[in-house]
Design a binder for these strands. Structure first.
Length: 257
DNA sequence: ATGCCTCGCGCGGCGAGA
């Protein structure tokens, strides 16, 4: 099985690239984030022509997550019990079962700055996600993938000095992420196609991508039965090249069976 | 060359992203 995760930064703006990428990469399951469309605006018919069914959870202008699968989607759930809002619930998590694995696509709140209320929302959101994932981990094979908006270590940002007093690297954010990993999830670190760091995000500005000044903030977490089957995991930086890319690259994971 | 920001909303310019 091949599965992937990709923050597309608007599924409508990215549709030609998404379709070409699906056709070339052929993941069985794809976790999408930042789709920026309501469910009824999702291009389900277009991806269906490539054999994918869609579970989409969106609210329009911001956020939005989805799951695409060509091996079925069962028990679809939008959001999760006890999910905090800002102040209202936002479309940041969707889960479904495909190929015997429980997939959850997550778009963790950005946090903005450590003194912004959005930062406390981010920490509360991660804390509320933890027991929900713990139940899924206990229930069977599970994958949690998406844009976590946390760089797990200083090695996951291009220059730690630039990020002092910024979100994505604070001890509280890293502790919240570690608490999620510690319920029994393995961080499947993908190999970079180029360079030493498997960055998944590069700012659009100032030529950050071609200087490889990025961050590893998109993660694939898996239970041991899934992590043990991984044969390859790669950041597809080809998808970040050219005209009209997302600012995030997909992570593609291959597993036995 | 991978190339210097882009999205939605909505029609001017702004909030948000990380």
């Amino acid at each position: 099985m091949r599965f992937a995760t990709w923050n597309v930064n608007s599924v409508k703006a990215r549709l030609p690239r998404l379709l070409a990428w699906l056709d070339a990469t052929k993941p069985d399951v794809l976790c999408l984030q930042e789709t920026k469309v309501a469910a009824d605006g999702f291009p389900s018919a277009e991806v269906a022509e490539l054999g994918y069914e869609t579970a989409a959870y969106g609210q329009g202008r911001w956020n939005g997550v989805a799951l695409l699968s060509r091996i079925g989607l069962a028990d679809i759930r939008n959001g999760f019990p006890g999910e905090p809002g800002y102040p209202d619930p936002e479309a940041r998590a969707i889960s479904a079962t495909a190929g015997g694995i429980r997939f959850t696509s997550v778009y963790v709140p950005n946090g903005r700055t450590p003194d912004d209320p959005h930062y406390q929302y981010k920490l509360a959101w991660l804390a509320a996600l933890r027991p929900v994932l713990a139940a899924e981990v206990a229930a069977g094979p599970a994958v949690v993938a998406g844009d976590f908006n946390v760089a797990p270590t200083d090695d996951d940002v291009w220059d730690p000095a630039v990020f002092v007093d910024s979100t994505h690297v604070t001890p509280a954010e890293r502790a919240a992420l570690a608490a999620i990993r510690d319920i029994g999830l393995t961080d499947i670190v993908a190999r970079p196609m180029k360079g030493d760091h498997p960055f998944t995000y590069w700012d659009y500005r100032a030529g950050m991508f071609h200087k490889n000044l990025g961050m590893r903030i998109d993660l694939v977490l898996a239970t041991p039965p899934v992590a043990g089957r991984v044969t390859d995991a790669v950041v597809d930086r080809e998808a970040r090249k050219g005209k009209g890319p997302s600012d995030h690259a997909p992570i593609v994971v291959d597993i036995d069976g």
